[in-house]
Design a protein around this nucleic acid. Structure first.
Length: 222
DNA sequence: CTCCGGAACT
DNA sequence: AGTTCCGGAG
């Protein structure tokens, strides 16, 4: 029997339902999940790009105390911005965030765009971050596939397929619940699953809430 | 010591 | 397609 190019609708629905229920109960109360302020969401996403949650938390609060709005960052001298980023590494992120703030101030009336396409055009914003900001700040019904999510989707729905980001984004799109509000929770949830359960080094299938809807989990009850 | 991780650039 | 950036986790 040929492997379907796309998972069955019933499996997709079950995965979505199980994930959402699990996230409601087990999702962590992270600071950036308690806000829809686009600036705060953006800062969290940029910091989280290559840095783990535990490390980001402290810097996140300090940075936002220093730059409570996008305008505060835009007005700051580059050297100070760089200093505020000390300890997080990948300093180009700070440079790009500063450039982004200036661009949004000067060319978008100070308002961060809600559209992934327009977000994508800003410095330091790739496909993932654009989707994340659109979903987490504006509750747009749009996918956000970072490497954690890609890993979960690959294990669950495309176990023998190595590459093709396109397939993964298509699957992510299919998995999204109907409303933007629910899509927010789904996107948060699937990232949480990748962070806590379906981690890079070990897939904890025995503790996984979507095990029965997952190609990898159905094989082994680890 | 090896692996992990978005975006930009070559 | 491959490389670079930077620090932490396993």
């Amino acid at each position: 029997m040929p492997r379907p190019s796309s998972p069955p609708a019933e499996t997709v629905a079950r995965f979505r339902r199980q994930l959402l229920r699990w996230f409601r109960r087990h999702g962590r109360d992270l600071p950036w999940r308690a806000t829809r302020d686009p600036w705060r969401v953006l800062v969290s996403e940029v910091m989280l790009q290559q840095t783990q949650v535990a490390r980001v938390e402290g810097f996140y609060h300090r940075f936002l105390a220093r730059y409570p709005t996008l305008h505060d960052l835009a007005a700051a001298p580059p050297a100070q911005v760089r200093e505020s980023w000390e300890g997080l590494g990948y300093y180009r992120r700070a440079l790009n965030l500063h450039r982004l703030a200036v661009t949004v101030r000067d060319e978008h009336g100070g308002v961060l765009p809600a559209d992934p396409e327009r977000l994508r055009a800003l410095p330091g914003v790739g496909r993932y971050t654009a989707g994340a900001v659109a979903s987490f700040a504006y509750e747009r019904r749009t996918p956000a596939v970072d490497t954690n999510v890609a890993r979960v989707l690959r294990r669950a729905f495309h176990p023998r397929h190595a590459g093709s980001d396109r397939r993964l984004w298509e699957t992510a799109e299919r998995l999204l619940p109907r409303t933007g509000r629910a899509a927010w929770a789904f996107n948060q949830g699937i990232m949480e699953l990748g962070a806590l359960v379906c981690t890079a080094r070990v897939a904890r299938c025995g503790a996984c809430p979507v095990r029965s809807a997952c190609a990898t989990g159905r094989r082994r009850a680890t």
